[in-house]
Amino acid sequence: MTREIEASADIPVVQIATIVPIMLTVGANRIVPGIAIPHPVGAPDKGDEVDKAIRREVLERALKAIQTEIKEQTIFNK
């Protein structure tokens, strides 16, 4: 889905998910590793404050990814 959106809209798509190898296989170009499968953008088990802070950090990284020039599939780690 990621690859097709990027191809048809010609805009950067950053994918946030937990199992990175699958994103690599399906052809996502900008990859941000998620926290956990049921909560890719948060850590609700760690309380509200931490949860939001983590969500913010992951999304800021995603925003950085869409502003980054890349030539091939790239994983944006913390």
């Binding site: 889905m1 990621t2 798509v13 946030i16 998910a17 499968i37």
Partner: peptide, 8 residues
Amino acid sequence: DAVILTST
């Protein structure tokens, strides 16, 4: 201009 896509 850009998309953030989340998957589980």
